[in-house]
């Protein structure tokens, strides 16, 4: 069971309080109605699925209920950091 630091609650909580919510930084196009089929496919279906550093979303569903972002190593499942939804993708990762 992972320990996940909620950036809103500012504490580590067990995984069962959270729900994984897919890849992070996949923004919904503001002009979504007019994008092409290919653009829609890229937005909605194509995923990085990286082996290594992944940027992903979690929701502290049984806690503060906020969505937030996390950086994790999908090889070791180790969390590198978490940050609030809307914050930019970190340029530098701690300890990397």
């Amino acid at each position: 069971m992972l320990l996940i630091r909620c950036p809103y609650c500012e504490e580590e909580r067990p995984e069962i309080e959270f729900r994984h919510a897919g890849e992070a930084h996949v923004a919904r196009p503001t002009d979504i109605a007019s994008i092409s089929d290919e653009e829609f496919e890229t937005f909605f279906f194509i995923r990085a699925n990286t082996r290594g550093t992944v940027y992903e979303r979690w929701r502290h569903v049984h806690g503060c209920a906020r969505f937030f972002n996390a950086v994790r190593d999908s090889m070791s499942d180790r969390f590198i950091m978490t940050y609030k939804a809307g914050d930019p993708k970190p340029k530098k990762l701690p300890g990397v």
Binding site: R19, A21, A27, R28, R59, A65, F67, A85, G86
Partner: peptide
């Protein structure tokens, strides 16, 4: 509820 919160918090904040 989750679907609505997701959009509200992340796409339409």
């Amino acid at each position: 509820m989750n679907h609505m919160e997701d959009y509200l918090q992340t796409e339409f904040p």
